[in-house]
Structure formats: C-alpha cells, structure tokens
Amino acid sequence: MTHYLSAEFFRTVRRRYLYFTLGICALLLLSVISLFAYANTTIPEDSEKATVDFLFYFFIQFLPTIGLYFTLLIGDMTFSEEHKVQTMRNTVFYGTPRMTIYLGKFLNCLIFCFVVMIALLAFAFGAGTLLLGISTSFVSVISEFLLMLAGAIPLWIAGAALAVALYSNIPSGNLAAFTFIGIFLLPTNLLKLFAFMLNNKFLSEVRSLFLTSRLDELAANGASSEPSFLITCWITGMVFTAIFLIGGYLGFCRKEIK
C-alpha cells in the first residue's frame, strides 16, 4: 500500500490539475476577501467592519456543503481519468490487489483533500488578516469553526468514499460526477417534497439521517451544536463511508479493466 500511495502522490503532484484547482480556489477566496475589504471602505467609520472573523463565520455557513462537493473535485483529480486513459490495467497486470487499488485511491483522495484544505485555509487566514485585520473575538470564532470542522470531516470522508466508489466503477468521469451530485441532491429533496406534501413526520426523520441534512444542520447551528450532534455526525459519516466503500468495492473487485 505504501508503494501504491507513493506512486499516486508522485503522479498527483506532477499534474497541473492540482495547481489549477489551488489557484482558482485561492483566486475565489481573494475575491471574497477583497469584496469584504472594499465593503469596509464604503461603510461609515463608526460601523462594525468585516474582519477575518467575518470570513470564518462565512466559512461556517457555507463550507460544510462546499466541502462535500469539493471531495468530488479532489476525487476526480486523484483518480486521474484512469478509465479514460486506460492506465489502471498497468497496475492490474502487476498483480496489485484490487483492494489495494481501491483503498489506495480512497486514501490518496483523503490526503489531498486534507492538503488542499489546509493550504486554502492558511491562504484565507493570511490574506484575510492582511486585508481585513483581526479582532479580539477571533479565538471564539475559530473555536466555532473547529467545532464545525469536527462535525463536517466525517461527512466529507463519506463524500470522498462515494466519489471513489463512483470513479472506480463508472467509466465516464462526467457521468460519475453527475451521479455523485444526483445521489446527494435527489433523494434528500424528494423526501423533503414528499414529507411536505404528505405532512409525514417519518419521511422528515429519514431525511434528517442523510449526509446533506446533517451538513445543513451543521451550517445552521454552527458552534451551538451539542456534542451529541457531533457524535451523530460521526456515526452518520462512518456508516455512509462504510456503505459507499463496500458497495463501490463489490462492483470494482470483479470489474473488467479495459
């Protein structure tokens, strides 16, 4: 597994995709920070100005859902279109177990999700501090942010597991991406619709078990999330991770590699 992961790392860091992704995300962050900085210049002197705390509040509200879809992007990056360019067979030829390939892809995806997130958060903090400044409430905001992360990470891991399961089994990268989005958007919204139309509490309860519902709740509650809620986030995340990983592997282990 270490050889497999080393090789995956070797390839991923040599791909422009990684640097384009980082660059575009950094530009987007810089745009948001610049917007806040510009807003600071247009409001009256005695009004409360946006600081880096504001930026992290912004993250608490939007990052849970963005992070989920970000795992799809990193999954695509780390999978490197292996079905399209038909390179996976070179790995299979050498007798590398399919389990190693599958888990290797998953771990590589998690590693790069972590690396990219750390890099972007460091950039956001640095640029935010420089352009917006820092206030005395920063420590409490960061603790709220970390609580949000504590709940979101297991849910994002499940997202990465689904991305790897789909990219491993669906030859078309675009179809895999649409399926990923469909799996997260369709069932939860259909349940929401039916629960509303039928005024059915059970359907609402079922919907609350979904990853996207947990992430929405996490964004809405932020630091007010109780420890028990964080525990349910971990349980939900781990259960969905297991389901996605096992389901994906069952398809992949007997799949013909072209």
Partner: peptide, 25 residues
C-alpha cells in the same frame, strides 16, 4: 504485459510514466 495499444498518463513524460510504475511496484 503489453496488451493492445499501450496506455500511459498523457501528461507525463516517458521517464515519469515509467518512474510512476517503478515506485508503484
């Protein structure tokens, strides 16, 4: 093995492609 038309990562050089599989193996 070499089955049908060889497949490699299009964005890597010959050396990097072989190095990738050397590390992997």
């Amino acid at each position: 093995c070499m089955v049908e038309t060889p497949s490699f990562f299009p964005y890597l050089s010959a050396r990097d492609n072989l190095e990738f599989y050397r590390i992997q193996r």
